[in-house]
Write a protein that binds this DNA or RNA. Structure first.
Length: 208
DNA sequence: TACCAGGAGAAAA
DNA sequence: TTTTCTCATGGT
């Protein structure tokens, strides 16, 4: 089966199972940016606590966050792990957003390139911001996506997998958001477990 | 106790 | 250019 047909079938199956995920949970585009940094190698539940801490201190905007001391940030986001790195990354990116308030209005390719040039922002984090904060079409490839693709027999590095997804499904922001969210939900439940046999994409002992 | 979670960046091979 | 190591906490 070709990639396009396979990925379309997987989408339909996941949507049928999980429905609309309404992603990304955030009250503002900047909150998505903050969440994208904090969620690196961390469970979302811990990110939520840190975001609550920042909101309680009225720091959920670029200007306020950029003016906050690194040590204070470390305490507020400690629960997300890697707090020394992340506090510096947060301060760095919020300073950039404070100086460039219209950055999210740029074309997705230019925006992505700009974001990746910032310290602490790699491909996945940049794409998450482009898609969920700026609302522009860039498919996010995360660890779950790589694992799922590997099981489906679709191989490639980040850029290759992104190209496969973007050429297989309609270039549509809502579709990109929904598909990635569905893969995460699927991944949380079925990937990394020792019982792959329960995977909803498996039939007769093998992936479709 | 050991392992993993919605990565990125530097160092080593 | 690809792989490995480090960053760190909290939950299972």
């Amino acid at each position: 089966m070709k990639h396009k047909e396979k990925l379309t079938e997987v989408y339909n199956k996941l949507f049928g199972k999980f429905g609309n995920r309404h992603w990304w949970p955030a009250d503002s585009p900047f909150e998505v940016v903050v969440g994208a940094i904090l969620t690196q190698q961390t469970k979302w539940e811990n990110v939520e606590k840190a975001i609550r801490n920042l909101k309680d201190m009225n720091l959920m905007d670029a200007e306020s966050l950029s003016e906050t001391g690194v040590e204070e940030l470390e305490e507020l986001i400690r629960c997300t792990g890697f707090f020394r790195q992340k506090s510096r990354r947060l301060k760095n990116i919020s300073t950039f957003f404070a100086k460039n308030p219209d950055i999210l209005e740029k074309h997705e390719d230019e925006l992505r390139k700009t974001l990746i040039s910032l310290n602490g922002v790699g491909e996945e984090t940049a794409d998450s911001i482009v898609l969920y904060a700026a609302g522009k079409p860039k498919f996010v490839i995360d660890a779950y996506t790589k694992r799922m693709c590997s099981c489906l027999g679709i191989k490639g590095n980040y850029g290759q997998l992104q190209s496969i997804f973007e050429s297989s499904i309609p270039k549509n922001v809502s579709m990109y958001k929904e598909y990635h969210a569905l893969i995460v939900e699927y991944g949380k439940r079925f990937c990394g477990k020792k019982i792959c046999s329960d995977c909803i994409l498996v039939e007769n002992g093998k992936m479709q």
